Computed example of a mutant assay.
Amino acid sequence: MERAKIISRLIEEKGYSRRAFAERIGLPPTTLQSMLNRGVGGAAIDNVLKVTKGLGITIDELEEMVANEKGFIESSERQDALSPAELAEFEAFINNPEHGIFFKSYLDAPEERKKDLQKVWEIIKRASEDEK
């Protein structure tokens, strides 16, 4: 996901429309719209700083989100199924009573749903590894 898509998603997650967010940070709505349509790379640094500050993140954190998103896409494209060891680790995870509620439908789910739940687990696992 490119920077503009991440910024759009973060604006949405904060509960703002693009126009309301732009007005809140003191940026003309057309300028924000242009940044998001044409790409953040060509925008004035002052405008990028206003946007990231308004989102409560730094430019470095935005870049980290871009890198993490690319890494997730590459790993999910490269691997559709878990290895036997990863599957065993996943099943141990979902059988933990603390996690079981979220994954309780896994054992009876169709194969496609199981793959979706495995991908969610990979995200959770990666996030917990990043915290260490």
Rank of each mutant, 00 (worst) to 15 (best):
K50G: 03
K50A: 05
K50M: 07
V51T: 00
V51E: 03
T52I: 06
T52Y: 01
T52N: 02
K53H: 11
K53G: 04
K53Q: 09
K53S: 11
G54K: 03
G54R: 05
G54V: 05
L55N: 02
L55Y: 04
L55H: 05
L55I: 06
L55W: 02
G56K: 05
G56S: 05
G56W: 05
G56T: 06
I57F: 01
I57L: 07
I57P: 02
I57T: 00
T58K: 14
I59G: 00
I59Q: 03
I59T: 05
I59H: 03
I59S: 03
D60R: 15
D60H: 12
D60M: 12
D60A: 14
E61S: 09
E61I: 07
E61Q: 15
L62N: 00
L62T: 04
L62P: 05
L62Q: 03
L62W: 04
L62I: 05
E63I: 03
E63P: 00
E64P: 00
E64M: 09
M65V: 04
M65H: 03
M65K: 13
V66W: 01
V66G: 04
V66R: 03
A67D: 07
A67Q: 14
A67K: 15
N68T: 06
N68W: 00
N68E: 14
E69M: 01
E69S: 13
E69Y: 04
E69C: 01
K70Q: 12
K70T: 02
K70Y: 07
K70G: 01
K70P: 02
K70A: 08
G71K: 12
G71E: 12
G71Y: 02
F72A: 14
F72Y: 15
F72T: 15
F72C: 08
F72K: 15
I73D: 02
I73H: 08
I73R: 11
I73C: 03
I73F: 01
I73K: 12
I73L: 08
I73S: 01
E74V: 10
E74Y: 09
E74M: 13
E74C: 06
E74D: 10
S75F: 09
S75A: 13
S75G: 06
S75T: 11
S76Y: 10
S76L: 13
S76V: 13
S76G: 01
E77N: 13
E77L: 14
E77V: 14
E77H: 10
E77C: 11
E77D: 11
E77F: 10
R78P: 02
R78D: 14
Q79F: 10
Q79H: 12
Q79C: 08
D80S: 13
D80P: 02
D80F: 13
D80H: 10
D80M: 12
A81W: 07
S83H: 09
S83C: 08
S83Q: 10
S83R: 15
S83Y: 04
P84S: 12
P84Q: 13
P84C: 08
P84A: 14
A85K: 15
A85Y: 11
A85R: 15
E86R: 06
E86Y: 01
E86Q: 10
E86G: 01
L87K: 15
L87A: 11
L87W: 06
L87C: 05
